[in-house]
Amino acid sequence: MKAFVDTGKKDTRSGFGAGLAELGNSNPKVVALTADLKGSLKMDAFAAEHPERFFEVGIAEANMVGMAAGLAVAGYIPFIGTFANFATARVLDQIRQSVCYSKTNVKIAASHAGITLGEDGATHQTLEDIGLMRMLPEMVVINPCDYNQTKAATLAAAAWDGPVYLRFGRPGVPNFTPADQPLEIGKALKLNDGKDVTIIATGHLVWEAIQAATVLEAQGVSVDLIDIHTIKPLDKEAVIASARKTGKVVVAEEHLVAGGLGEEIAGVLATACPTPMRLVAIDDQFGQSGKPAELMAAYGLDAAHIVKAALSLR
């Protein structure tokens, strides 16, 4: 199996901040809004260099979504930045009507997603956002895996004509994808070719899946490893082809089972190519305070749990 090198831990939200800063200089139509979370979203560089195109909206997320929609109607490309909970559940109706149904070109940048938010606890640990966003017609859902991919996803989101939900996280995680690798929306990234079992992962779970695949390969289990950065539109062809090849599929994500990538893939495979599956995700419960790594282990989202899930399919 190809070796993936961690070039140093970096938070994915900083990848967004770097991408936004680059867009600020390359595209005068890009504007940014935040709801009192400029620093947390790493929007400082954009705000400092383009103050006229940066709007601090205050703690008023619904208004922020609407303002972004109005800017988009007029031809601007607004990125709104806040925590994933406030970027989705709190403003679902505003996103549904003012963004998706109105086909406005709004990019929703959601940080601190998932259980790895850590110490803040369940009020802020959004585990439903992928489901909420992928249910909306018109919405593209991207959940990148590291700093470099998040930066590439930010650039790709700006180039995409239509609403995009861009999900990323708070803690530093291994940065291993190439710095110059563009992100093609809707195209799965094959990380390893194997024949015994398919492991599909998204977001922070991709690195865990790489660790799991390394362990499995050492045990003689050949792993077909796929990074799904674009949850919607899903690269169904890649998923089906891999399932046909291996006959066993594990899906790993930092989300509830309900509404998640695993459920979506199960739906695709149930109609195209019924395949035994295991879902590495959180089942119908809230998180709690703790350190990211201990929460990942406690809620069954780490490499060890992916290995176990894969072996249980044999």
């Binding site: 619904a62 929609a69 109005g70 009507q97």
Partner: peptide, 18 residues
């Protein structure tokens, strides 16, 4: 712009004015 679910249009108009 679509409208119907109430309360959203003023925000949209502010964005358009900006």
């Amino acid at each position: 712009q679509a409208a119907g679910s109430l309360g959203q249009g003023l925000s949209v108009a502010i964005g358009a004015a900006l």
